[in-house]
């Protein structure tokens, strides 16, 4: 519980490894989009997600901090695409598709592919507490080095 795909955008080298890996894991369509500026965009699995609110067929469902998509219930009305604040839902013909956090891999106890494959370590699969703790460690290093220079 509490594990998220979290991104450190300053690390992204726009190598598209996550896109290629995601497409391979999901039958040719990638659920993550890398912007040329170096930001991977993928479903944030929001609390009270907008996509879920607008879906009238119940194809989207929230469970355990995850927004789950039921493809067979989707009618392709595209309302979720319009509602999503991140543009993280795609359309394949007449059905939507979105990140499922690699549910088939997690069942085998494996990490989502994008987080594991990222060569630059920009994408991680961790909880917010660990992620922020690591960031504080990095920020703390420069802070501490500044203090070292001051000699106290």
């Amino acid at each position: 519980m509490g594990y998220e795909v979290l991104v450190r955008p300053e690390r992204c080298i726009s190598c598209y490894a996550c896109e290629v890996a995601c497409a391979r894991e999901h039958g040719g369509l990638s659920n993550v989009w890398v912007l040329p500026q170096g930001v991977p965009i993928l479903c944030r699995h929001c609390q009270n997600a907008a996509c879920l609110e607008v879906c009238y067929t119940g194809a989207l469902e929230q469970r355990d901090g995850e927004v789950i998509f039921h493809r067979e219930k989707c009618t392709g009305c595209e309302l979720c695409l319009l509602a999503c604040p991140f543009g993280a839902i795609g359309l394949d013909g007449k059905r939507a598709y979105k990140c499922d956090l690699c549910s088939h891999r997690r069942q085998e106890g494996l990490m989502p592919a994008c987080a594991l494959t990222c060569p630059a370590g920009a994408i991680s699969y961790s909880c917010v507490a660990d992620f922020s703790h690591r960031k504080r460690g990095i920020a703390g290093l420069s802070w501490a080095m500044g203090y070292e220079r001051r000699g106290k």
């Binding site: 979290l6 944030r44 609390q47 009270n48 507490a129 992620f131 922020s132 504080r136 990095i138 920020a139």
Partner: peptide
């Protein structure tokens, strides 16, 4: 708040955490 963690991911100091019960 919808718990998308965009703020967490951009914060350079790692000081945006998560509520225990709610996401």
């Amino acid at each position: 708040c919808i718990g998308c963690w965009m703020c967490t991911m951009v914060c350079p100091y790692g000081v945006i955490g998560r509520e225990w019960e709610r996401r």
